[in-house]
Amino acid sequence: MVDQRLAQAFEGVGEEYDRYRPGFPESAAETILPEPVGAVLDLGAGTGKFTELLIPRASRVVAVEPSRAMLDVLRAKLPRVEALIGGAESIPLPDGGLDAVTVAQAFHWFDRDAACAEIRRVLVPGGVLGLLWNRSDPSCAWDRACHRVAHPAVVTGEDATTASAAQGLPGFAFRGRHEIRWTERITRDDYVARWLTVSSFLAADEDTRSAMVAEVERILDTDPETDGRDAFTLPIITDVFVYVADEVSS
């Protein structure tokens, strides 16, 4: 069940999300689209952090996103992309016109069955669906500890949102999972600011949010890898799940 309060927390976030959230490795796009295609949709595109990697891989790139604030940033950054307001459960595109659909850091916000039906509708038979998430590297103790501030249920190396994607999706055949490890150089200030773009921080009341930020600061002040440093090398894992639409619609 999607927590609508958390989902709606992103509605007014645009420039901050684009500035502070991590991007994605180019190899993630290559994994989903190893060869160029005619048309691809980035669904739940946000500010276009993954959308931009699709531009060299398709003749036509469409982005659908429910947040106007995020879509405004995407349109300014990527004027060649066809950007549309919309959601995964009602995609504003005709039947069977897309060779691929990608969903970066967003599938867990969708109504799974309704979204799968809509994605299947807009894809050609045999079209590709790629789901991907960034997650913390379990080898990085300080980043993992900060993740638990935002998501207290995170106690293992794999987030539940990522793990759940491996389950079968109606109308699709699972083709494989790929784990991509990479690193990002980030300043301490930007790392802290990144947490202020996360749903649990955005939805919290002011006192709770301040306490959460203080705990992140405490972790950075006490871990030997971050204490006294203005910038860090942050390891990130990107999980990519690839599916193919059934030849016959379910």
Rank of each mutant, 00 (worst) to 15 (best):
D3W: 01
R5Y: 13
L6P: 00
G12T: 11
Y17I: 08
Y20R: 01
P22M: 03
P22Y: 06
G23K: 03
P25W: 12
E26G: 15
S27D: 14
T31Q: 14
T31C: 13
L33M: 09
P34E: 13
G38S: 13
V40R: 02
V40Q: 00
L43M: 10
G44D: 09
G44S: 12
G48D: 10
K49N: 10
F50N: 09
E52A: 12
E52H: 13
L54G: 02
V61L: 08
V61Y: 00
V62D: 01
V62G: 06
E65L: 01
R68T: 14
V81E: 06
E82W: 07
E82F: 05
G86N: 08
S90T: 14
G96A: 15
G97I: 10
G97P: 02
L98G: 07
A100Y: 02
V103C: 15
V103F: 04
H108S: 05
W109G: 02
D113S: 10
E118C: 04
R120G: 14
V122L: 01
V122M: 01
P125E: 02
G130D: 01
L132S: 02
A141H: 11
D143N: 11
D143G: 01
R144I: 07
A150S: 15
H151G: 07
P152I: 00
A153E: 14
T156L: 00
A160Y: 12
T161S: 13
G168L: 12
G171K: 01
A173D: 14
R181H: 14
R181S: 14
E184C: 05
E184F: 03
I186K: 10
A193E: 11
R194V: 12
L196I: 02
L196F: 05
L196K: 15
L202D: 01
D205W: 04
T208L: 14
R209Y: 09
A211N: 10
V213A: 03
A214Y: 06
E217F: 06
D221N: 10
R229H: 14
A231I: 08
F232L: 02
F232E: 10
P235A: 05
P235Q: 06
D239P: 10
F241I: 02
V242H: 06
A245N: 04
A245E: 03
E247C: 10
S249E: 15
